[in-house]
Design a protein around this nucleic acid. Structure first.
Length: 630
RNA sequence: GGGCCCGUAGCUCAGCAUGGAUUAGAGCGGCGGCCUCCUAAGCCGUAGGUCGUGGGUUCAAAUCCCACCGGGCCCGCCA
């Protein structure tokens, strides 16, 4: 039994090559089709040692190998094919023997890793941008855990900014209406979204109305246009929930919303019990809505880290400003009560680009408002400091949108200057999700929510299922819909923008979550109908190309996972299981398993079982629900 | 203006870190086939590509380097 059969194969090849050339640890690549499975390019060596070619041709005849066969030396490449009888036995024994642990490499150092992800502001429901974050983050956690690391998922809850105060202020006026809506089973984050958006719109209308005074005609017209847009936002919500919106408008019209919100923000940072009570209540309601969504997607967090507690009430954020001013006085400027960190100068002087993976341009960072309240970056540094000191992580992987590259770079420089190991903070950046034509703005009430996306996907799944007489239960429909959505978001490199496309997400054909689930169902179905545990089997000679390919792919799985867990490119795991599923389906259509002749039947059952194990382990990592029927 | 990312088939994307073989891979969409047989959310066949452009390095470039072109994002007392 081998944890990594592919590595056993490669090592045997390296040993052979070392005997032939006298050089250890040569680079092994996959051979081009028609030239075997593995290949070692030897052009460099040959050029410096003219006799080498004939030496290899001489020595190659006496080579004895267990897993390899057909060694040939062609065009400067040393090629080898695989002895599928021996290697197949190794691969199938290892896969079936290790089962749910197949793919895990045990001699990896066990690391403490924090994955901070999603971390949406608690103001409105999660939308498709958050969905990308959530799916990536949760899959990373699953991957790292599968590989044996101690990974924890944390949600950084920003309850301190100005935006939350809009929500809290609005909420304080309509608490009773909110309670009734939630009791009648409306989703809390969706109800709170109305409050946040409408309160914000009212504040904008008030601000613009004030700004109108003494403006010239052209500017006046611009402002009126802008104000009309915000009135339009309110009108849109009115059609969704007349009572709630009307009550908000009535009770807020006599208040200077902008001033009140600023006052609340200050009071919240000062720990005012009244403000704290209402903010906490509002945030918790939104959070309750988030958690319903997480549950549907099988996303779990180990902790919600409240920013107010970690950065503000502890005094940590303010101490960080002072400590930074002390530790790096040359890079902190103070003017009119505001501290500015010259990240640009610090990066240039200290030459930290490589160590901290910084971009070549970094703007200066303002650390606080002149009224004494903190800014997001400073609180974020406090959070990072807290993570590093309290959790003792080897790495903190933060799944954050790419447009935050500069703040995240500033954060790492500050940590370094404060004496922390900033290289442990990894910004796992993902590109934005575009809506194509429409602009997305949760503040304006325009967003494709994850909940809405899931509902549509479920409808689509049910339509397909009823069309073909499959299982049409809610459980199956949700599992398939979640599989489709998760697969979509994890199949594209995080560095690529996504132009959101309903057709692509809801596609249930090949190269999709449901395709993987369906393939698993087929494998499962064969095994349960065969009613025979494939323990005794012999790998026959003369395997079909499909059977051979399946063995090679299954054997490669731990190597694929190892690579994916090092570079965190989940999309490579996705493309691997898609290829495996394609190959399995070809095999499935072409060759009978249960009705195969004795001997062949046992081998094929073992092969099916191994495929099933690899699919199941991969689906677990990607959070794609596993179904036994669909 | 500066920085970061992206550019591979009509569309959506793998492959690039660590260069490898004059057939560059998938899926969707086209076109043509396959359900008395382990689930047709499947399978088979077919058409479709100057790997953005131009240089350079190399025995060998989609992959590395430089320049340019196109698209996106960032450069706040917002987050």
């Amino acid at each position: 039994m081998e944890y990594n059969p592919y590595r056993a194969l490669v090592n045997e090849f390296k040993d052979i090559a070392a005997k032939l050339t006298g050089v250890e640890d040569l680079q092994v690549i996959r051979a081009r089709a028609g030239f075997g499975y593995l290949s070692i390019p030897l052009h460099d060596l040959i050029r410096s040692r003219p006799n080498l070619s004939s030496e290899i041709n001489e020595g190659i005849r006496g080579v004895k190998a267990h897993y390899l066969v057909d060694l040939r030396f062609i065009n400067g490449f040393l090629n080898a094919n695989v002895n599928l009888i021996n290697y197949g036995k190794l691969v199938l024994d290892s896969t079936i023997g290790l089962g749910p642990n197949y793919g895990k490499v045990p001699d990896l150092r066990r690391l403490n890793i924090i994955v901070e992800h999603t971390s949406a502001n608690p103001l409105h429901p999660l939308h498709i941008g958050h969905c990308r974050n959530m799916v990536l983050g949760d899959s990373l956690v699953r991957l790292l855990r599968f590989m044996g690391h101690n990974a924890s998922a944390r949600f950084y809850l920003d309850d301190t900014g100005i935006q939350v105060m809009y929500l809290a202020l609005g909420y304080s006026k309509v608490k009773e209406l909110v309670r009734r809506r939630i009791e009648s089973s409306q989703k809390p984050d969706h109800v709170m979204w109305i409050i946040y958006s409408v309160t914000n719109a009212i504040a904008e209308v008030q601000r613009i109305t004030k700004a109108l005074e003494g403006k010239g005609e052209e500017e006046y017209r611009e402002l009126i246009k802008e104000r009309d847009e915000w009135v339009g936002v309110i009108a849109d919500w009115l059609s969704r929930d007349k009572e709630l919106v009307n009550t908000l408008v009535e009770s807020l019209s006599s208040i200077d919303v902008n001033a009140e919100v600023a006052r609340m923000a200050k009071a919240y940072e000062d720990g005012d019990e009244g403000v704290k009570g209402i903010v906490r209540e509002a945030v918790n309601l939104v959070l309750k809505g988030f958690e319903e969504t997480f549950k549907l997607f099988n996303v779990k967090f180990d902790a919600y880290d409240w920013e107010s507690e970690i950065a503000i009430y502890s005094g940590l954020a303010k101490r960080i400003i002072m400590n930074l001013a002390k530790a790096a006085p040359g890079y902190v400027e103070f003017k009119d009560g505001v501290y500015v960190f010259r990240a640009d100068k610090a990066a240039a002087d200290l030459k930290l680009w490589d160590e901290l993976k910084l971009p070549k341009f970094i703007p200066p960072a303002t650390l606080n408002r002149s009224d004494g309240t903190t800014l997001y970056l400073t609180r974020d540094v406090a959070y990072a400091v807290w993570c590093l000191t309290n959790c003792n992580p080897d790495a903190v992987i933060r799944v954050i949108a790419v447009e935050q590259t500069h703040p995240q770079a500033q954060l790492r420089i500050i940590l370094k200057l404060l004496g922390y190991d900033a290289s442990r903070i990894v910004h796992y950046a993902y590109e934005m999700v575009n809506l194509g034509d429409a602009k997305m703005s949760s503040r304006r009430g325009q967003a494709v929510t994850i909940d809405g996306l899931l509902d549509d996907a479920v409808k689509r799944v049910k339509a397909i299922a009823s069309g073909r007489g499959g299982l049409n239960t809610d459980d199956v429909a949700y599992a398939v819909a979640v599989g489709a959505i998760r697969y979509y978001f994890v199949s594209v490199s995080p560095s690529k923008q996504i132009v959101f496309d309903w057709g692509r997400v809801l596609d249930m054909n090949q190269n999709s979550g449901p395709f993987i689930q369906y393939t698993y169902v087929r494998a499962h179905s064969i095994l349960s109908k065969a009613n025979l545990e494939p323990t005794q089997y012999i790998v026959p000679s003369g395997l079909s190309p499909e059977e051979g390919n399946l063995i090679l792919m299954i054997g490669e799985f731990p190597e694929v996972l190892l690579r994916v867990s090092e570079d965190l490119k989940l999309e490579n795991l996705v493309s691997f299981i898609n290829r495996l599923a394609l190959e399995f389906n070809t095999f499935y259509e072409k060759y009978p398993v249960i009705n195969a002749e004795p001997g062949l039947r046992e081998f094929r059952l073992a092969l099916v079982k191994a495929v099933k194990i690899v699919l199941e382990n991969s689906m677990g990592i990607l959070g794609i629900p596993v179904l036994s029927r669909m």
